[in-house]
Each structure stands twice: as structure tokens, then as C-alpha cells.
Simulated scan of single mutants.
Amino acid sequence: MLGALAAPAPDPIIALMQRLAADPRDGRIDLGVGVYRDAAGRTPVMGAVAAAEARILAAQQTKGYLGLAGDPGFLAAMVDLLLGASSDRVAAVATPGGSGALRQVLALVAQANPDAQVWIGVPSWPNHAAIAEGLGLAVRPHAYLDAGGGVDTAAMLADLEGARAGDVVVLHASCHNPSGADLTGDDWAAVADLCARRGLVPLVDVAYQGFGAGLEEDVAGLRHLAGGLPEVLVAASGSKSFGLYRERVGLALALCAGPAEAGRVGAALAALNRRNFAFPPDHGARVVTTILRDPVLCADWRAELAGIRRRVQANRSALAQALRVATQGAGFDALERQRGMFSLLDLAPDRIEALRERHAIYLVPDGRINIAGLTPATIPTVATAIATVLRG
């Protein structure tokens, strides 16, 4: 039986990690893998996380199972963080990371409406389409980026006019992966109007809350949808916002038409947890709950997250300026305007390969660059190398 299996295509980011690990050269620069790094190149444990873990270690007396939906305190704290207030229209379950949340939300879609099409912008995070297709859902593309590195809202809305009632539209709450180009407030209002008119269900991926403009600002679009639409789906991650990458903290949330529907949907989500992994992991979720429910820890976390956000934006500005100098040209204003950890560089595959082979600079094959992987010391090196390969 197993001998008939074909090997899957290698994941480009995992393959990049393997090539980087095997590269013997000193001075390798990793701008591919999507994790935050500080100025020393480390992915640090946030101070509030370390303090919360110490409290948990001192007080926790059992590792027994929790319910299938996870800790109710975690669910309530995350709903407050995402939506700004609790609601009797909400059904939510804890999941293993943001990918697990996406999987459970899309599995809910497949269960409720197997004929639903999932509309995903071009470009988007590859796992959006991979998870939807793995569940047997049809995936449809829609336009997203314009030629200047911003959002082509008119083209996006025109494509979504072809969606059917009951279709799902995947949206990035902020810090679009891979481009860094986010919807404006007017864009969110236009998308909300279209969803209401066409009977579409938005699925908002909240992976970088606090990395863009601020904790509340980064979910303003989500809250606008939640205030005006009967159904909104959310997949949220604690990996970036709390630095809990390996703890796999996620939340799958459905905003429903009313309390009765929310009860049924909550039961359906819990049943999906049971069939897929039974009880969700708790340690990272308990860390998040401890931070969000303690005023001192929460203030410390907010301050540290604001510092991370400022550092990433400073990297953007510094790289844009270094590229202007190295290339003796303009054309990098979009890089400075974008938000979050990622941007797309307009580099042909052979030039991305040249960066890797000649300069030991590792980018994802589509040109996605991890802005948070830069340091003040590496920014001039990267800019000079990019200018060199651009000149051929």
C-alpha cells in the first residue's frame, strides 16, 4: 500500500532551510524563514512570556486534559483581543497554531457547504490554498497587488463579483504575507459591502496582530466586518504576536448569526477537534491567557510588541534607503509603505539564485523577503548584493 505513494513536491521554505543549514559559508543571511529576529539575529523569548511561564510552573498542579475546545479562559481572552469585546454570537476553539485554526475553519466550511469556493488573492500564503484543496474545496484566485506594490482594490472587487452566495473570501487582517500590502479602511468597507450584497463569508487570517500599525489598528478591518455581517470566520495565531512559534497557539473562531447558531457551530468545531487531534495543546494558550488577564504582564507585552513593530519598520526604511543608494535609483517607496515582516522583491528566479549562490543571501523563490531577518549590519550588504544582481 505505502509503496504506491508518490513523494510530495518539496515545500520551498523547508527546502530553503535545508540548503541554508548545509551551506558552509560564514556570513549567511537568512531572509526566507518567516520568524522574527532581533538585532542580534535571535528569535527571543518575550519578557512577559518568560514571566508568565514562571508563574505557570510555580502554580500548575496537573497536566490533565481540558475540554475539546480548550481552556475557556483562553477563548474569552482571545475573543476580547480580536474583537474588542465578548459576544454571544461567537463560537471558538483552541487549535495547534494558526495553521490548525485555518484547517478547522475550512473543515467547518467543507462540512457546512461542500460546494463553497474559497477565493484567495494572488499572491497569498501558499498554505491557504493547500489546506483548502486538501479538504476538497475548490479554490478560485482573485487579483490583489497592483504594479506599484499596493492593493489593486478595483481589480480585487471585480473578480469577487464572480463569487457565489456561500463562497468564502480569505483576507489577511494585516501585514499581508507575502507582500506587506494591506487593505485600507475604505477597502475593508468596500469588501464588507460586497460580501453583504453577494452573500459571501469572509475568512480573516490574523497572523501578525501588533506587527503592522498596532494591536487594535491591525484588526480594525476584522472588527468592521464583524459589526456588519452575519457570518465571519477567523483563524488567529499566537506565533508572532507572542513569540510562541513552537508552542503552537491558535484559535478558530466563527461569528454567527445568533446565539443558537453559535452553540451549534461551537459543538461542530469541538467535534472537528475531536476527530483531528482530540484535545488542543494548552501550555502556550495558558501563557497567552496569563499575559492578557494580568495588567502588568499585558502592559509589558504591549510595550515589547511595540518595540518589535518599530524595529521592523525601521528595517524597512533603512533597506529602502540603502537600495536607493546602491541602485542609484528610486522605486522603493512601496517597500517603505508596506507593513509587517514581509515584502516581495521584483527579482527573477535567476537573480534570487545568484543572491544565494554568490552572496549567501537566502530568499524564498517567489522573492519574498523577511524584513525582520535584517540587522543594521546586514542591510548594506543585502542592498549591495541586490544591486549587483540587478545589474546582471
Results as ranks from 00 to 15, higher is better:
267 A>E: 15
184 T>K: 11
183 L>F: 05
233 L>I: 00
262 A>M: 02
184 T>C: 09
260 A>L: 10
246 R>I: 10
247 E>I: 03
263 G>E: 12
269 L>R: 02
152 D>H: 01
153 T>C: 09
218 D>F: 07
241 S>R: 13
136 G>C: 06
202 P>R: 09
268 A>K: 03
235 A>Y: 11
247 E>P: 05
256 C>E: 00
169 V>K: 08
196 A>N: 09
205 D>W: 12
154 A>E: 15
230 P>R: 05
249 V>W: 04
229 L>E: 11
252 A>N: 03
238 G>C: 07
196 A>Y: 09
186 D>K: 08
273 N>I: 00
246 R>W: 13
234 V>T: 03
223 R>K: 07
143 A>Q: 10
149 G>N: 03
166 G>I: 00
202 P>M: 05
173 A>P: 07
184 T>I: 06
259 P>H: 08
258 G>H: 07
257 A>V: 00
150 G>Y: 12
146 D>K: 05
193 D>S: 12
197 R>P: 13
138 A>N: 10
150 G>Q: 14
174 S>A: 14
135 L>H: 07
248 R>Y: 10
144 Y>L: 09
212 G>P: 03
203 L>E: 15
134 G>T: 04
191 V>C: 10
183 L>W: 03
213 A>R: 14
195 C>Y: 09
242 F>G: 09
220 A>T: 11
149 G>R: 06
234 V>G: 00
271 A>C: 09
262 A>H: 01
170 V>E: 11
137 L>R: 08
213 A>F: 07
198 R>A: 11
257 A>G: 01
214 G>P: 07
233 L>T: 01
262 A>F: 00
254 A>W: 08
195 C>V: 05
161 E>D: 15
273 N>C: 05
271 A>S: 15
